[in-house]
């Protein structure tokens, strides 16, 4: 039976983890490579890096981090943030990323998703959709961390990226992100019911119960969380044991 995945996400800015884990065993709380290794040793099913570096000049930094991480972590590694060109993808994959997550560039031009999945295979193309609720059962795609409204319906967009070869959707609720009040389960349910590719739930996790909701109520194939793991409130193992105790199948 296919297991539900738990994916810790590390936000990286200029080569440093923005919200670090407070584990005592950490030598350098800001070192993404060390943190990724801790997650991987702790049973993370995949690792996600989100590069929030503002400038383009610093792209080499994330590539270097990916290169180092990939030599130590032998679980899938997804990298997102600033992926705009085929060359960006090539660089990340050559450095050792297994998947890249495309956000703004996919919204601007869905043909980019098509081109990328044709060239590299759907298995490594994740499209990150940031959605915000605009009315009852209606969500719109936003870019630039929720600042820019696009007028594009989230469901239609999700279907469109699937048609264009995306292998997975990383769905973030901009209303919930950072609130620790749980995923937007209605949004998740709507997207998972209307697409045929796996959806990774993101945005809003504050408790282990939220992970349960994302999978069981929202229909997500994987759950992504940042802060509950970063601050050491829970370890990956805690999350897995909790889900397992509630009959959600995970890789233990």
């Amino acid at each position: 039976m296919l297991k539900n995945r738990i994916i810790p996400c590390l936000d990286v800015k200029d080569g440093r983890v923005v919200k670090g884990i407070n584990f005592v065993e950490l030598k350098d709380a800001g070192d993404p490579v060390e943190q990724a290794k801790i997650y991987s040793d702790g049973g993370a099913d995949e690792i996600c890096f989100l590069d929030i570096t503002a400038s383009n000049e610093n792209r080499e930094t994330i590539i270097d981090i990916v290169r180092k991480t990939a030599k130590e972590c032998f679980v899938p590694l997804t990298v997102g943030g600033g992926v705009r060109t085929i060359q960006n993808i090539t660089d990340l994959l050559l450095a050792g990323a297994d998947k890249v997550s495309i956000n703004t560039a996919a919204v601007k031009n869905v043909d980019f998703v098509k081109e990328a999945s044709k060239k590299f295979g759907s298995q490594c193309i994740v499209v990150a959709i940031d959605a915000k609720k605009v009315s009852d059962n209606k969500w719109e795609v936003f870019t630039h961390g929720g600042r820019n409204k696009t007028g594009i319906d989230a469901v239609e967009f999700a279907q469109k990226v699937e048609e264009n070869g995306a292998g997975e959707i990383l769905l973030t609720s901009m209303d919930k992100d950072g609130t620790k009040s749980g995923y937007d389960v209605d949004l998740l349910k709507t997207i998972t019911n209307n697409t045929n590719i796996p959806v990774i739930a993101s945005g809003g996790v504050g408790t282990l119960d939220h992970l349960y909701d994302g999978i069981v109520k929202g229909g997500a194939s994987a759950v992504l969380a940042a802060s509950i793991f970063h601050y050491g409130e829970y370890k990956i193992k805690d999350a897995k044991e909790y889900l397992n105790s509630k009959n959600v199948s995970v890789r233990l």
């Binding site: 039976m1 296919l2 995945r5 194939s221």
Partner: peptide
């Protein structure tokens, strides 16, 4: 469509 494709993730 009952099962999502690709078959992605950890399986036994």
């Amino acid at each position: 469509g009952k099962f999502k494709l690709p078959h992605i993730g950890w399986n036994e």
